[in-house]
Amino acid sequence: MIGVILLQTLRIAVPYLFAASGGVLAERAGIVSLALEGFMLGGAFGATLGAHYSGSAWVGLLCGIAAGLALGAVHALACVRFGANQIVAGVALNLMVVGATRFFLRLAFGSSSNSPRITGFGGEGTAGALQTFANPLLWLGLAVMPVLAFVVMRTRFGLRVRAVGEKPEAAESLGVRVATVRWAAVVASGGLAALGGCWLALDQHQFTDQMTAGRGFIALAAVIFGRWEPVRAGIACLLFAFAEALQIQVQGTNAIPSQFVTMIPYLLTLVALAGLVGRSTPPAALGRSEG
């Protein structure tokens, strides 16, 4: 029972971990990450197309990442080059990706609700646990937050990311190219979040309409609940996933309505926002269009 719950927790947490890592990176560079949901959905769709036409999950993975990087570039173009309002740009991107995946799903497969079955990671028919542990994305997902923590806190690039997110003018005066660093962070965040979408598509062996189902916003909640620190955000992802796994186990008993479990990440984040469990202070330049 406990083993089942823990395994379930990991499986649910992987997409959150990828998306939240993208969120941490972009937000530390000062760009609001409302488009995580869109990046994930785009990644899932790219992975599906790649895997469908090549018959290889690895090609699917690459296509998913490419889709995420491309969407990240669109977000960077809007927010960094044009100085668009980052919140509006994020909302627009999410809307666009939902529409575009439906449109091209119909174009490619003649259905706007789901794709045919694709190859994914983990052969079919094997026991659930083995299948999960054979998925390389699981290990990548568990590694992503510690690696990101190292990159953000210990490398030159990470220092620059934090500088342009906190004091862009100061960074600029020291010769840091603010726009370049932000471009890099936002494009990378698109690729990272897309990995979460790749996990969904390759794990479920197909693409379904709006299959990310708000996971990008749970990841955003984890970023804020984790106070913009990679490891804390990772722990928040695991926590949120654990609550969901627990709910799936007790579903049959009707002990707690599933809708209330759904609320947990959002309620916790609201409480964290109110400063009741320690102050959440965003990067100082977060959301500023120009800097």
Partner: peptide, 10 residues
């Protein structure tokens, strides 16, 4: 497909 307008809204 009507989804075209969702893309256009974005």
């Amino acid at each position: 497909p009507k989804q075209m307008v969702e893309v256009l809204e974005g």
